[in-house]
Amino acid sequence: MAQVLFLGGFGRSGTTLVERLLGELPGMCALGEVVHLWQRDLRDNERCGCGSRFSGCTFWRRVGDLAFNGWTNVDVDRVHALRDTVERTRHIPRLASATTAPPEVLEYASYYARVYAAAAEVSGSPVVIDSSKHSALAHVLRWAGDIDLRVVHVVRDARGVAYSWTKKVARPETDGTQEMTRYSPGRSALLWNAHNAAFGLLARRGVPVRRIRYEEFLADPRAGLVRLADFADIRLHPTDLDFLRPEHADLRVGHSAAGNPMRFTVGRLPLRRDDTWKRALPSAQRRLVGAVCGPMLRAYGYPINVEAR
């Protein structure tokens, strides 16, 4: 049975940073956002975190051979059809309330289970990390009997998230020809509420969920990693954290299938909070997001009123 540490939350909440740091720990293998593997990697042949095209990455070639006897045996159209049928945010209430899993849910989850098991064997790691974030996918995966699913729910202040979604960010894997999706602050506030609430619902369905706040994790990443490793049943030696420095981390090459540009970082990665939103996000938009997300901000321990700095 593959043990999967699923990093969930709404996009731009810091999941890639958490994934990269966790991936440096012994016994853990970071896979990136596996939810995008089928299109961006199998179909579009985008670049792996190691820099190679997916088809040329030795790690992923071995995973495909072991999981499916070669990636060419994966019916991507079928995976997409299953995704459209079961893995949508609007389907979460049905997934959460069901007493048995529909066949389509089990079939869709089986594709991920085979990838996870193969990646664990190829890497020799007992824990694989999927930073897909999608709450609906996490609700699907809970039905897979051959996955030991543990969820790390990463939360960031909704106003910081809203500001991040307004920025133009090029996608390096497309050689700069495409940009990452952008949302208006109002739209991102609604999505922030929906996705974070969905992970709370997942915890009430018996799935082990550990919530962390991005800001607190960055304040003391060493302690944060120790707690997450313990959550994954990985015991660390003090030297296992030597890659962490007071203000940066030294990263090795990874094999993230998809994700934000940080997955390509090798060497020094600065570790500092990004509070630019406190001065850059217009006050009207800051108040709008604060009003829409107020109850959940308060529940997560964030202040409702934030002065611009």
Rank of each mutant, 00 (worst) to 15 (best):
A98H: 06
A118I: 10
S123E: 06
K133T: 06
R114W: 04
A98C: 06
T89W: 07
S125E: 15
V86T: 02
P103I: 07
R88E: 14
E87M: 14
S125H: 13
A119P: 09
Y108I: 00
E121S: 09
Y108W: 00
T99I: 15
E87G: 06
A120K: 09
P103K: 12
P103S: 08
A136R: 04
A113T: 13
D84R: 09
T99W: 13
V127I: 14
A109T: 04
A109Q: 01
A144H: 08
P103V: 09
S110F: 03
L95P: 12
P102G: 03
E87N: 14
P102N: 05
H139I: 05
E107F: 08
V105H: 01
H91W: 13
T85R: 15
V122L: 04
H91E: 14
Y111W: 13
A117S: 15
S131V: 04
A120W: 09
Y108D: 00
E104V: 02
H139D: 06
P102A: 10
L95F: 11
E121G: 03
E121D: 10
P126T: 02
S135W: 02
S135I: 05
A117Y: 02
Y108N: 00
D84C: 02
V105W: 00
E107V: 05
A98M: 09
E87W: 04
Y112V: 08
R114S: 12
T100S: 14
A138P: 13
R142F: 01
S132Y: 12
I129P: 02
A96I: 02
L141E: 04
P126K: 00
T89S: 12
S97T: 15
H134I: 08
S110K: 05
V86W: 00
E121N: 06
E104F: 10
L137F: 03
L141D: 05
L95R: 09
P102K: 02
R94Y: 15
S131D: 06
R94K: 15
Y111K: 06
D130T: 02
I92D: 00
L95C: 12
L95A: 07
A101T: 04
T100M: 09
H91P: 06
V115G: 07
S123H: 03
H134N: 09
Y111Q: 03
A136S: 15
V128I: 13
E121K: 09
A118S: 11
A117T: 14
V128H: 06
L141F: 11
E107K: 07
G145H: 04
H134V: 05
W143V: 07
A118W: 10
E104H: 09
A101F: 04
Y112T: 04
S110D: 15
T85G: 13
P103Q: 07
R114L: 10
S110M: 10
T85A: 15
R114D: 02
A136E: 06
A101N: 08
V86H: 01
K133R: 14
A144I: 11
G124Q: 01
P102Q: 07
